[in-house]
């Protein structure tokens, strides 16, 4: 019988044969219910496309995003060779958008790494150690949570100096507290569970317990939260770019491009409009994906 079993049957088996089988089977069923969510699939599609565009930017972009052509400034949409027109220095807007995808992905990826990891560290230590450490760490978390995020990020960038890396740091600094909260809550439930006591009896130290047993269990709830936060991260990064505090010229960061196009908005509307549409599309994609993920992992919370 086992030979005639198809892959699909194996994946949907009601009685898994091993732990790995059970895990993979659960993943597959999650994927099936995710796949039936059209909106989430659209979001995923857009993001896959974005990654592809960013990776293949040199191949896809019709022009060098930095080459100026002052003779052909502010060319309108649909101009020969410049589908999205050109900006105030005659640079091809489409090419700049394509290269800008790299910057956006770079920022999002970095923040999505730094903030949850920082939160995970603070949260698990706070939850596992308890006592005064917990009180102090959570108080600090609360203080950061009580802050207006954009203004805090502004102040940080002001202190550190403008630039992509500092923008990433500033956004991460304002983004970690919710992750710490989640990680702490998870740690508290896991810490008191029987299997941790069993591992302790086997002589595992706190470091081993946290890294080998608690972290892996915290990760799935963190991932959903990160996906839902991605859109916010993109908007924050674009906002900093728009204020001139993120990526510096001539870098084709989308927020900075809007800021540049703002001066001509009434006469040459497309210069600011196109990058805005790009930001909108990508953050919409993240929101759709996040909603879909949440529905799969937590069916009650969504609808």
């Amino acid at each position: 019988m086992a030979e005639t079993q198809t892959m699909r049957e194996w994946l949907l088996a009601e009685t898994p044969t091993s732990r790995r089988h059970a895990k993979i089977s659960a993943l597959y069923q999650g994927w099936l219910s995710f796949r039936s969510n059209t909106m989430a699939m659209i979001g995923l599609g857009i993001l896959v496309l974005l990654v592809f565009i960013a990776a293949a930017a040199p191949l896809l972009s019709p022009h060098d995003p930095f080459v100026q052509d002052l003779g052909n400034r502010l060319a309108p949409l649909g101009t020969d060779g410049h589908i999205f027109g050109t900006d105030s220095l005659g640079r091809d807007i489409l090419s700049r958008l394509i290269y800008g995808a790299r910057i956006t992905l770079y920022i999002v990826a970095l923040v999505a790494l730094i903030a949850p990891i920082a939160g995970l560290l603070v949260g698990t230590v706070s939850g596992y150690v308890g006592g005064w450490t917990d009180t102090v760490l959570m108080r600090i978390t609360d203080i950061f949570l009580a802050f207006p995020r954009l203004v805090l990020a502004l102040a940080f960038v002001a202190a550190l100096g403008a630039g992509i890396e500092n923008a990433v740091l500033a956004i991460s600094l304002t983004a970690w507290p919710p992750y710490a909260r989640i990680a702490r809550a998870e740690t508290l439930t896991i810490r008191s569970s029987d299997f941790i006591s069993a591992i302790k009896l086997q002589g595992a130290g706190p470091l081993r317990i946290i890294t080998k047993h608690i972290w892996p269990l915290c990760i799935s709830s963190l991932i959903v939260r990160v996906t839902l936060d991605m859109a916010g991260i993109i908007l924050a990064a674009a906002g900093l770019g728009f204020l001139g505090l993120g990526a510096q010229p001539p870098s084709p960061e989308w927020g900075a491009m809007i800021s540049e196009g703002r001066r001509f908005i009434l006469d040459y509307w497309w210069v600011a409009t196109m990058p805005g549409l790009a930001i909108f599309t990508v953050s919409l994609a993240f929101n759709l994906l996040g909603d879909g993920l949440r529905d799969v992992l937590d069916p009650k919370a969504g609808e």
């Binding site: 906002g239 809007i258 908005i265 805005g276 930001i279 909108f280 953050s283 929101n287």
Partner: peptide
């Protein structure tokens, strides 16, 4: 709601100015 969560506010402001004022 989805559009509200996904739209950069400064860009929407610019578009608003362009359309309703310009």
């Amino acid at each position: 709601a989805l559009v509200g969560y996904s739209m950069p506010i400064f860009w929407l402001g610019l578009m608003g100015l362009l359309v309703f004022y310009g």
